[in-house]
Design a protein around this nucleic acid. Structure first.
Length: 962
DNA sequence: GAGCACTGC
């Protein structure tokens, strides 16, 4: 008990392969099968007593690595036949348009349907979803009649009538301009949240068809930006129709890994935007959809912008498709223009009036005077501010400075001199003044009527700061913190509820009884800095759209008040909207999507979007994809690119998944992949940071790897779950893990495994299948697979020079120079490493440049799974280098051996990707197995740098990294 | 010594 899993699999020094359980059990099978006899059984394997360098020499002498083409073919035949008759069933690729069916075709249609039912009985649930998608929308007169009589029967249903009474009060109910939707191919419907457009418009369209006796020709699909809203809106609509959601009824939803599908025809489906983008792969014309409703397009998410561009093109080939865009009022016109000045319908708002105050009003009202900061800033403000600001923001700031004197003068008529001075002082400090917020909260509590207070702040540090202030303030301010039911419940009489939140409360979380909103005026935004090729996150001024949304949160139950903590001049300079996401993110994944959806040349498609990304960003993404070997020189998908595009993850993570499958360490690699593409399962509660760090460090089992820490956590969770719900809860609690996140990761892993199986990379859909996990407990190989996926995201460790007093190491990347390991990483305070290289996934510039996750990796893993190897002799030193920048000293003899072995590996992998099939681990004499096991053995048995055949090049030589 | 928000047949 308590023994390190990694210790168990590493075994005694030098005997790594012996303790690898996969090899032992498989040897017998291989011999029995006859195929293992080629080369004489043991010849596929070096003698167990050999260590790193000796293994290499042993393989160099052994000529069996080179094999004839004929031998390769024989292996291929074997594997192909293994899969015969076992191919995943594919849905029939039907394409069609909505069409009324002629009577004489009816019989044929019915036969088709019968066939369909038979097929359905055979297929698995996932394939059933697929088939659902390919359903043609062909008129079914019987269904039309049934739907119509059902609909008429609803007029007698008390539940339905009660709902109808409510629906009739919605502003959107009076706007039953379905005719306009029917008459024009594209319509923009604008209206603020609360007007009911999301729930009503889809129903109007459907009910109109049903009443006209054409219900079977109507299939409305409505996209939502968030999973939660897809489910909750579908449930709401089902309730309004006095039905339950899904299961062949008139309303359902589909989100990733979760669906309750409505009947195929005469229904409304709510789904996330990503789902439709995935649909397009199998059905580029969306032939089964009669009406596509895109909700919340004003949010300008990457996916909705892409879908808009696709749909605009699609309208050329789908003349019968009706498209409805739903937007906030502020920029509805922009969408209309994008669609050739299509008609617009406006639905008036539904919220109560909200009184707005600006900073000067608040300061005057509270007679607030900012305290002098005792602590002088370490740097002049200009330095701190301009360190990384974006050019467009700088111009705005300049305009603000220039206009300030004039603005201040204009305030003199209405505000006291003290207030104006206070405004100037508040302005000097770039940070949000929490004292002001405390004073404002106190004012509301003492002087205003009942109602919850919602405070918007940009991030965790502000939230925790304000929390501290409120906790230590004299009565009557007392706050309970973490997100719990209390946030949504109404407090008992005499208790004031105060909710402090980030912009999560703008869209994702709704607190019903809010009457007072304090808008801190800032929001954290990620950007992609194309100049320096790095993602950034910083607090920026909100946009008018954010401010409006925040204000709206105060008027849900009664008239409310909203206090914006920026002055009138700032308010006049706010952007209308945040920059669309497509201009703020790296585009690699999107480029692959464009290729697999066959949307034309990447740049020309992207230029067709509403607000195209910069040419520089496009160019960077394409270059990166070429470096990854996902795109060839003419920007076409390579075989690798094809598989990466099909996996629902970004390309680096996809590559890691493929390598995990080929190198038979599937389960742990999928855990890592799922967590990198979603989020890691750890929580760090306010005030428990140290303890949480400590627990994570224990889970890391000294692997010096955040990625393996997650694997350990996941295995621990699976184990605990097997022992029952109580154990699971306890395990999560003790280790600061989120059970919800772990469950989602579990589901995602299943999805990845299914993809791999469908593509032929693994034998079984089961990611725990033993043939896919022969090497799953080989820590060093896992690290190598992480390199294979994430390369070239490599950082170099400069060990601390103080031998006696261990100091945290310094870390450098080639492009950025010195970077920091993020404090939540298990390597953050590490002083001792075995090697001097780290591989990471997320790097972001916030207060500094941080590596958010990293794993220590060995030279061997970089040599075999990194870039091109070059061998050089410079300054009397023989060196081997990866992509000419990760340089090791090495005797030329060894270097050439490694280079040759790597070349063999590359040939093998390319063939595997070109013709996916699992490595035949049973046949130890096979060519696949020989090369791969040689490399695995080298990686596994290299114990420490002192045993390696080369040395780290001295730091001095690599100093250009500074 | 630090964690805006989302999403994927």
């Amino acid at each position: 008990a308590g023994q390190d899993v990694w210790d168990r699999c590493a075994g005694p020094s030098g005997g790594g392969y012996q303790s690898n359980p996969g090899w032992e059990s498989r040897e017998g099978q291989a011999r029995g099968g006859g195929r293992g006899a080629r080369g004489g059984g043991a010849r596929g394997k070096h003698p167990p007593h050999l260590k790193g360098r000796e293994i290499g020499l042993w393989y160099a002498k052994w000529g069996g690595i080179k094999r004839s083409e004929a031998e390769r073919k024989s292996v291929r035949t074997y594997v192909t036949s293994y899969f015969d008759g076992d191919d995943p069933p594919e849905g029939p690729q039907k394409m069609g348009k909505v069409a009324e069916m002629e009577p004489d075709k009816k019989q044929k249609q019915e036969q088709e349907e019968e066939k369909e039912v038979k097929m359905k009985a055979k297929v698995e649930p996932r394939e059933r979803d697929l088939e659902y998608l390919f359903q043609d929308l062909v008129r079914k007169p019987a269904l039309d009649v049934e739907l119509k009589s059902d609909f008429q029967a609803k007029a007698e249903n008390p539940k339905y009538l009660e709902m109808l009474k409510f629906r009739e009060t919605l502003p959107s109910y009076g706007m039953r301009e379905v005719n306009l939707v029917q008459a024009s191919r594209v319509v923009v419907i604008s209206g603020e949240t609360g007007c009911g457009k999301t729930t009503q418009v889809t129903q109007f369209i459907l009910d109109d068809y049903i009443q006209r006796g054409a219900g079977s020709l109507c299939r409305v699909v409505c996209t939502q930006p968030r999973r939660i809203s897809a489910i909750s809106v579908a449930e709401r609509v089902a309730a309004e129709r006095a039905e339950s959601v899904g299961e062949g009824r008139s309303c359902g939803y589909q989100i990733r890994l979760q669906s309750r599908l409505p009947r195929k025809q005469g229904s409304v489906l709510y789904c996330t935007t990503g789902i439709i983008l995935q649909w397009l792969r199998s059905d580029p014309c969306l032939s089964s959809i009669s009406h596509l409703v895109l909700d919340e397009v004003h949010e300008r998410s990457l996916q909705s912008d892409v879908l808009l561009a696709v749909v605009r093109d699609l309208l050329h080939s789908r003349e019968d498709l009706k498209v409805v865009l739903m937007s906030a009022t502020l920029n509805a016109e922009k969408f209309s223009k994008y669609f050739d000045n299509c008609p617009m319908i406006h639905i008036p708002g539904y919220t109560y009036p909200v009184e707005e105050y600006l900073l000067e009003d608040v300061v005057e009202m509270l007679r607030f005077r900012p305290q002098h900061q005792d602590r002088r800033p370490r740097f002049p403000r200009s330095f701190l501010q301009n360190q990384w600001t974006r050019p467009e923001k700088e111009a705005q700031e300049a305009e603000y400075r220039q206009s300030w004197p004039c603005f201040a003068r204009s305030l003199r008529d209405r505000f006291s001199d003290d207030t104006i001075e206070a405004l100037e002082r508040l302005d000097e400090d770039d940070k949000i003044n929490l004292d002001l917020i405390v004073a404002l909260i106190r004012h509301i509590v003492m002087n205003e009527d009942d109602g919850a207070i919602l405070v918007f702040l940009p991030g965790w540090d502000n939230i925790s700061g304000l929390n501290d202030l409120l906790m230590h303030a004299p009565d009557p301010c007392r706050v309970t913190m973490p997100l719990s039911d209390q946030v949504f419940k109404r407090p008992p009489a005499g208790v004031r509820k105060i909710v402090i939140a980030t912009n999560i409360a703008e869209t994702s979380i709704t607190v019903d009884d809010v009457v007072y909103v304090i808008d801190g005026g800032k929001i954290k935004e990620t950007h992609f800095d194309t100049q320096n090729n790095i993602s950034t996150m910083a607090a920026e001024w909100v946009s008018l759209a954010n401010a409006k949304q925040r204000k709206g949160r105060a008027g849900r139950v009664s008239p409310g008040k909203c206090y914006h903590l920026y002055n009138g001049l700032r308010a006049s300079l706010l952007d209308n909207y945040q920059l669309p996401e497509i201009q703020r993110t790296p585009l690699e994944e999107l480029c692959l999507q464009i290729k697999i959806l066959k949307l034309g040349p990447i740049a020309s498609f992207l230029r067709k979007t509403l607000d195209p990304p910069s040419e520089k960003a496009i160019e960077l993404a394409i270059t990166h994809l070429k470096d990854l070997n996902a795109l060839d020189r003419s920007e076409e998908l390579t075989p690798l690119g094809f598989h990466l595009a099909r996996l629902p993850v970004e390309p680096h993570i996809g590559k890691m998944i493929l390598f995990g499958a080929l190198l038979a360490c599937l389960d742990p690699v999928l855990t890592i992949a799922a967590s990198l593409s979603f989020k890691d399962p750890f929580c760090i509660p306010l005030g428990k940071e140290k303890l949480a760090d400590h627990r994570r460090k224990i889970l890391s089992k000294n692997s010096k790897s955040d990625h393996l820490t997650i694997v350990n956590a996941f295995w621990g969770w699976e184990d605990a779950k097997r022992r029952g719900y109580k154990c699971e809860r306890e395990f999560c609690w003790d280790n600061f893990l989120s059970a919800n996140t772990l469950q989602m990761l579990h589901n995602m892993k299943g999805q990845f495994a299914e993809h791999l199986w469908a593509a032929g990379f693994v034998r079984s859909k089961d990611l725990k299948d033993s043939s896919a996990n022969i090497n799953s407990e080989n820590e060093k190989l896992l690290k190598a697979v992480i390199v294979a996926g994430l390369y070239p995201k490599v950082a170099k460790i400069r060990p601390s020079l103080h031998k006696k007093r261990p100091m945290p190491v310094k870390v450098y990347t080639k492009a950025d120079g010195k970077v920091c390991i993020h404090p939540k990483s298990v390597n953050a305070e590490e002083t001792q490493f075995h090697y001097t290289w780290l591989i990471y996934h997320l790097k972001m510039r916030t207060s500094s440049i941080f590596l958010y996750d990293c794993t220590e990796v060995s030279p061997f893993s970089l040599l075999f799974f990194g870039g091109d190897i070059s061998i050089q002799k410079d300054q009397e030193q023989e060196t081997i280098a990866v992509d000419e920048w990760i340089v090791f000293q090495s005797p030329a003899r060894i270097a050439h051996l490694v280079k040759n072995l790597k070349r063999e590996l590359d040939v093998l992998l390319e063939e595997k990707i070109r013709q996916p099939r699992p490595v035949d681990w049973d046949d130890r004499g096979s060519s696949d197995c020989a090369v791969i096991s040689a490399i695995i053995d080298l990686i596994t048995t290299q114990e420490s740098p002192s045993e390696a055949p080369w040395q780290e090049r001295s730091w001095k030589a690599g100093q250009h990294w500074d």
